[in-house]
Structure formats: C-alpha cells, structure tokens
C-alpha cells in the first residue's frame, strides 16, 4: 500500500471536519445581507397573482447549492400567491427545474396550469431570450409535457415580457448575463438573480448599474433567504458544511504560511 502524503491528510481532514459538523447539527445565526434582502423585498412587494418567469439556467453538477437557493425563493413566491412560468435555457436544468417547481407547488397546494406552468427547454439561449421578448407563445407552442400553450389559464394572458413582472434566473454560470444583455436591455424586463456563490462577483457590476434588480448568492444567500421567510431548509444546513470547510481552509492557509516562513528563516540562517 502506498504511504499517505501530506495532501492525503488534508483531504481526509476536510472529510472529517464536514462530516462531524453535519452530525453535530449546530445552529448558527445568519446575518442577512442587503443583497438578499433586496431580492426578498422585491418579491414581497409584488401584488399577489403577479406573473414571475423562473429560468433554470444551471447544470446538474451544482444541484447541492442550487436546490436550497431555488427552493427558498420558490417557496416565497408560491406562498405570496404569485403565478410562475418555468423555463430552462440549459438542457440539464430542465428536469431539475420541473421537479423543483412541482415539489414546491405541492407544498402550498398550487395547481398546474393556473398557478404555475413549466415550459421546459429551448436550445440556443440568446435566441430563446430574444424570441420570448416577441412572443412566448411562438417560442414555446407547447409546455414541457407537450400540451398546447393556450390550454393553460395562466398562459392565455401572457404574450411576452410585457406581461411578466420579472425574470428570476437561477444560474450556476454566466447565463444570467444574457438575460440582462438581451431581455433587460432590449425588452426592459426586470431581471433577478439567484446564483451560486462563485458567480456572485460576476454579477456585482450589473447589480450596481441596476441592470440586475436584485440578487442572492450561494448557500449563504439561501440561508439568509430562509431566515427572511421564516422557513428552515437546505441553505441553513448546507451553511454548516460550508462554514466548517471555510474554517478548515483558513487553518490550512495559516499552517502553510507558518511552515513557509519557518523554512525561509532556516534557509537564511544556513
């Protein structure tokens, strides 16, 4: 058997730290950031029955982070009585979005067709965003399960972005940028973001310039949103793992730097 090296111990340490923290199930308080609060307040401010388009612009790989983000904001929207239209501009997000909308709608007793509809995937996201600005009906003649657009009570009054209060892009990449560059800039639709933590700084300039109206980011954002709506979920629990992993990484950085400076001093002495 090969001998374990320093890096193997760091891997093992990470696994132990995350597992133990999750088992302990410690409750930590989360301070709500102004970014997350802005998204919450916007959805809260819309009159009940407003039509929101939710775009699942992510892949399956980011599901552990995307699920709590999406669930928290979908719960809020359904609880407020908003009507949701689900779309997906990445093929892998299609099934996830369908499942997430279905599960969350069931929690609040919302009906498919009148309270929410899932339209599914369209290839080439730029073309799809632009085409929906002209006509959502022409872009999606049928819903995800193949039923005609006009069959649904919710969709009969929705022609294009003019009939949608906002588009919420749930993304793990740069797809939200296209919603702003084509949906917001060309058709003036309000764009909201619910993105993974790694993408937060990408969207900060758009947030500052008001091209993006509001944004929540990462597990931290999900935990903050859960606190705002008063419903516990995967965000708060995921934050335990994330917080312990962050502490562990900081510890490794400190240890690595101490070792580096000690070695450098010894080198100078020699």
């Amino acid at each position: 058997m090969r001998r374990l090296q320093a890096r193997h111990y760091t891997f093992l340490g990470l696994a132990v730290v995350i597992t133990v923290t999750m088992l302990l199930n410690i409750r930590l308080d989360t301070r709500v950031s102004p970014y997350t609060r802005a998204l919450h307040d916007y959805i809260e401010s819309l009159p009940p029955g407003s039509v929101l388009m939710v775009s699942f612009d992510h892949e399956a790989s980011s599901l552990p982070e995307i699920r709590p983000i999406a669930r928290s904001v979908l719960r809020h929207a359904f609880r407020k009585g908003h009507r949701l239209i689900g779309v997906s501009l990445l093929a892998e997000g299609t099934l996830i979005g369908y499942r997430l909308m279905q599960e969350t709608a069931a929690e609040y007793g919302r009906q498919y067709g009148s309270d929410y509809v899932y339209l599914g995937f369209r290839p080439q996201y730029i073309a799809a965003i632009l085409a929906m600005g002209e006509s959502i009906r022409d872009t999606y003649p049928r819903d995800y399960l193949g039923r005609p657009y006009d069959q649904f009570e919710l969709l009969r009054s929705v022609e294009n972005y003019d009939d949608v209060a906002a588009v919420l892009s749930i993304a793990d990449g740069s797809l939200t940028t296209h919603w702003m560059e084509y949906g917001q800039a060309r058709y003036g639709v309000v764009v909201l973001g619910a993105v993974t933590a790694a993408m937060a700084t990408t969207y900060d300039p758009y947030l500052a310039s008001a091209q993006m109206h509001a944004m929540m980011a990462g597990l931290r954002g999900a935990a903050e949103y859960e606190k705002l709506i008063g419903i516990g979920g995967g965000g708060a629990r995921g934050m335990l793992a994330q917080s312990s992993a962050h502490l562990y990484v900081i510890l490794l950085i400190v240890l690595g730097n101490v070792a580096y400076f000690v070695r450098r001093r010894e080198g100078r002495r020699d």
């Binding site: 890096r7 760091t10 891997f11 399956a60 980011s62 599901l63 990484v249 950085i253 690595g256 730097n257």
Partner: peptide
C-alpha cells in the same frame, strides 16, 4: 445517476482548494 455523478465531480473542487490552500497560497 447523472445528478449525483456530476455533483461528485464538482465537489472534488473542495479537495483541490484544500490542497492548494496548504501548498500554494503563500504570502511570498
């Protein structure tokens, strides 16, 4: 099948970050 496999591959990033933080993140 697909979602857990992809999440697993993505989660390997945490392992690389842990290793890099110890070995490469120095105040040189």
């Amino acid at each position: 099948v697909q979602a857990p496999m992809q999440s697993t591959v993505f989660a390997l990033l945490a392992i690389f970050v842990a290793s890099a933080s110890f070995r490469g993140f120095r105040a040189r």
